[in-house]
Design a protein around this nucleic acid. Structure first.
Length: 553
DNA sequence: CGGATTTGACCAGCGC
DNA sequence: GCGCTGGTCAAATCCG
């Protein structure tokens, strides 16, 4: 049964079970006691002998006498023997109005299909039950529609707010933009809103879950389930607009999480849940992991950074193990406190390849040029963490471990996933997009490319991941082709073992089934290709010109 | 002179 | 416990 629906019935149980009286657990015995207020009639139904009924008649002379109705067969239609007790009961029932009598009949229905009345009254009883059930169904439908309405209102408000803020930002930025630019911004805004809807839906679901859990916790104040659900709450990816809307709600949690894991953005390490006390830490760690889901972009560039439209400030540089090229650390300076960081490092084997790794989501409006990349990081993180985190990770781990054995000999990929790395990472390999002709993939650089990519140790490359999808209506393929990008179908790919095909298909589905990610990825590719061309003509972008010397050293 | 970059120090997590 | 590694901090330095 739907959890929420069940919960809904739980909360309404006193009404739902009407006209039954609410069963109360007798603390002194294992029996249920059904109180009928009007008749002071109590029946103890012993679980061990459902057909052995104790009738406690408190009426009459006042002394409560309990009589055992031995082996009373309530189901025998032809049993015309009546004990004195049952006669008393019948007398009392006959002395009350019809409606009350009906209730009494229902009151002594134990739910064990015991029958004390004729077949016709049983039919009436069923009819009453059905009517009540129908009534509750109608009520449930009404509540559902109310909830949907609330969700729709929430989304509409969110869209309006984001549009408003975007317009404000554009107005502040001055009227220097051409109408085409404004139009493009609006287009990006719409796309962003579309991508945010998925998260909004998740948020709504969380709200529903949360309120439901609160309701449940009122009924069951100490519930292990509540504790777990509470601790697992809010695996959240902050898309830009969402983050603006819900900043207050998120910041404290993120900041505390941040402080709990004092070292910053890739601070590292796979969480261990060695003991039950780690359950509480699990939520923090999970939130941290989600916040640290990364998108790595490999692109050929002579510049120190790819042009992503954001302003960055370098705050550190380190020599990383296994790579003679230093790794530079940047943080976004477009707004104070923006949590977005990026690492830039040249590939050890091919120094023309620049590896840029993004983490986090901007907490401020973005210029159009930066929108696509930021959306990609958000959407990729969303894609990585769509579904339940453990299952997603498990799926990736298992499939990718298979891939590592079966798929590596194939040609390099456009995208890869690393779920078993310290933090889930999507790697977009744009090095095979011919910079002189973005519509053509370059031929494979080598058969075993992953080893030369300086990818995280556990990162596994998916060969031609998008080309594996046979469905021509696939979102990403369609979008890629609309960009003029050829999707590879090399004979090599068709020679893969069936097992590899299965795992690749599963991994492919994981990527391509998220429309927001595919849309954002296409936007990012378009942006990078565009910027690459622009850089070729105009030189390096303004934000990276000053950073060239150090990382190339 | 203010902002950005450099670079050594520091810190935390992990493995041995 | 110690060393290694990745990441961040912050004072010194550079540059427009």
């Amino acid at each position: 049964m739907d959890k929420r629906l069940g919960l809904f019935f739980d909360t309404l149980s006193p009404t739902f079970f009407h006209p039954f009286t609410k069963p109360q657990l007798n603390s002194n015995s294992s029996s249920f006691q059904f109180n009928t207020i009007k008749k002071n009639l109590t029946m103890d139904v012993h679980a061990a002998a459902p057909d052995r009924i104790l009738i406690d008649s408190a009426g009459g002379d006042g002394d409560s006498e309990k009589r055992v109705v031995n082996e009373m067969n309530f189901f025998a239609a032809d049993d015309h023997k009546e004990t004195s007790s049952s006669l008393d009961v019948k007398k009392e029932i006959a002395s009350v109005p019809d409606r009350d009598a009906q209730e009494i009949k229902l009151d002594i229905n134990t739910g064990l299909n015991l029958s004390t009345t004729s077949t016709s009254s049983k039919t009436d009883q069923m009819a009453v039950l059905r009517a009540d059930l129908n009534k509750m169904n109608v009520e449930n439908q009404r509540l559902k529609s109310l909830l949907n309405q609330a969700n729709n209102d929430y989304r509409a408000l969110q869209m309006h707010l984001y549009t408003f803020m975007q317009r404000q930002h554009l107005l502040k930025a001055g009227n220097s933009q051409s109408p085409e630019m404004v139009k493009r911004n609006e287009g990006v805004t719409v796309a962003k809103q579309f991508m945010d809807l998925g998260q909004a839906e998740k948020d709504n679901h969380e709200i529903v879950q949360s309120s439901s859990e609160n309701t449940r916790s009122q009924e069951f104040p100490i519930s292990p389930e509540n504790i777990i659900v509470e601790s697992m709450e809010t695996p959240k990816i902050n898309n830009n607009s969402n983050e603006i809307v819900a900043l207050d709600r998120l910041d404290n949690r993120e900041e505390s999480s941040e402080r709990a894991h004092t070292s910053g953005w890739i601070s590292n390490k796979v969480p261990k849940f060695n003991s039950s006390r780690d359950v509480e830490h699990a939520s923090q760690t999970m939130t941290s992991m989600i916040r640290k889901a990364r998108v790595s972009v490999r692109a050929r560039s002579e510049a120190a950074m790819i042009a992503d439209g954001c302003q960055w400030r370098k705050y550190g540089q380190k020599m990383a193990k296994g790579n003679p090229c230093p790794r530079a650390y940047y943080r976004c300076t477009m707004a104070s406190g923006c949590p977005v960081r990026k690492q830039v490092q040249r590939c050890a084997q091919d120094r023309t390849v620049l590896i840029t790794t993004y983490e986090g989501n901007h907490n401020h409006p973005l210029p159009p040029a930066a929108m696509s990349m930021a959306s990609t990081t958000s959407a990729a993180a969303s894609m990585l963490l769509s579904g339940s985190m453990p299952s997603a990770d498990g799926m990736m781990s298992s499939h990718f471990s298979n891939l590592s054995k079966t798929a590596l000999p194939f040609s390099p990929s456009l995208a890869s996933l690393s779920a078993s790395a310290p933090f889930p990472t999507v790697t977009l390999d744009l090095t095979r997009l011919n910079p002189n002709n973005p519509s053509q993939f370059q031929p494979p650089l080598s058969q075993v490319h992953a080893a030369s990519q300086n990818l995280p140790l556990n990162s596994v490359t998916m060969p031609h991941v998008f080309g594996q999808v046979n469905n021509e209506s696939n979102n990403f393929l369609g979008l890629l082709r609309s960009l003029g990008v050829e999707t590879p179908h090399s004979p090599q790919n068709q020679m893969q073992a069936p097992a590899a095909n299965d795992t690749i298909s599963a991994a492919t589905a994981a990527i391509t089934s998220d429309p927001s990610f595919t849309a954002a990825l296409v936007a990012a590719i378009t942006s990078i290709i565009g910027n690459s061309h622009q850089n070729q003509h105009n030189g390096n972008n303004s934000t990276s010109t000053r950073n060239n010397s150090d990382t190339n050293s």
